[in-house]
Amino acid sequence: MYYKEISTREVVQEEDAYLYAKENLDELEEKDKQAFVEWFFSGNWIRGEDKDDEADRKIN
């Protein structure tokens, strides 16, 4: 299986798709970057506003 970019006809094999997508994240438009961030943190993450909020503690 592969993915083909319809305007350039570039082909990316399925086994290379994750790395290709990861390498091209910086080329996203700002609205798409925000959508990606919201998707990425949509699992077990909660959004907080205050740095001192208990929910914002870093786990190292």
Rank of each mutant, 00 (worst) to 15 (best):
K4A: 11
D52P: 12
D32I: 02
I59D: 11
N44M: 08
K31F: 11
K51R: 01
W39H: 03
D32C: 00
Q34I: 01
R57Y: 03
E15A: 12
A21Y: 08
E14Y: 04
R47F: 13
F36L: 13
K33S: 07
K31Y: 08
E14K: 15
F36N: 06
E23S: 09
I46T: 03
N24K: 04
L28G: 10
K51V: 00
E10V: 13
V12N: 02
N24I: 07
Q13R: 06
A55C: 05
V12K: 02
V11I: 14
F36V: 02
G48W: 06
L28D: 02
M1F: 14
Q34W: 02
A21W: 09
T8P: 15
E27I: 03
Q34L: 09
A35Q: 03
E23M: 13
W39V: 00
I6G: 08
R9W: 08
Y3M: 13
E29M: 12
K51M: 03
D56P: 08
Y20V: 06
N44Y: 15
E15M: 05
I46P: 01
D32V: 00
L19N: 14
E27A: 10
D53M: 01
L19R: 07
G48S: 14
K58H: 10
N24F: 06
E54D: 10
N24Q: 14
Y18L: 15
Y18R: 12
Y3P: 14
L19D: 12
D56Y: 08
G48A: 07
S42I: 00
F41V: 01
N24D: 08
D32T: 08
L25T: 11
W39L: 11
G48H: 06
F40I: 07
E29T: 01
M1D: 13
R47A: 09
E54S: 14
E38D: 10
F36I: 05
E30S: 02
Y18E: 05
M1V: 13
R9A: 13
N24E: 07
D50N: 10
K4T: 15
D16W: 04
F36W: 13
M1T: 13
E38Q: 05
E27R: 11
A17M: 07
M1Y: 09
M1P: 14
A55E: 09
Y2N: 15
L25C: 03
D52S: 10
W45L: 02
D52V: 00
R57N: 08
D50L: 12
V37H: 12
D52Y: 09
E49M: 04
I59M: 11
D50R: 11
V37K: 14
Q13M: 05
E30Q: 09
E30N: 14
F41I: 01
S42Y: 04
W39K: 11
E23R: 08
R47P: 06
G43P: 04
G43N: 14
I46C: 00
Y3R: 10
F41S: 03
I59K: 05
Y18K: 06
K58E: 10
S7Y: 09
E54H: 08
F36Y: 00
E14I: 04
F36C: 03
A35Y: 04
I6V: 08
K31N: 01
D16P: 04
Y20H: 12
E23H: 12
E27P: 04
E5W: 14
I46L: 07
E15H: 10
I59W: 11
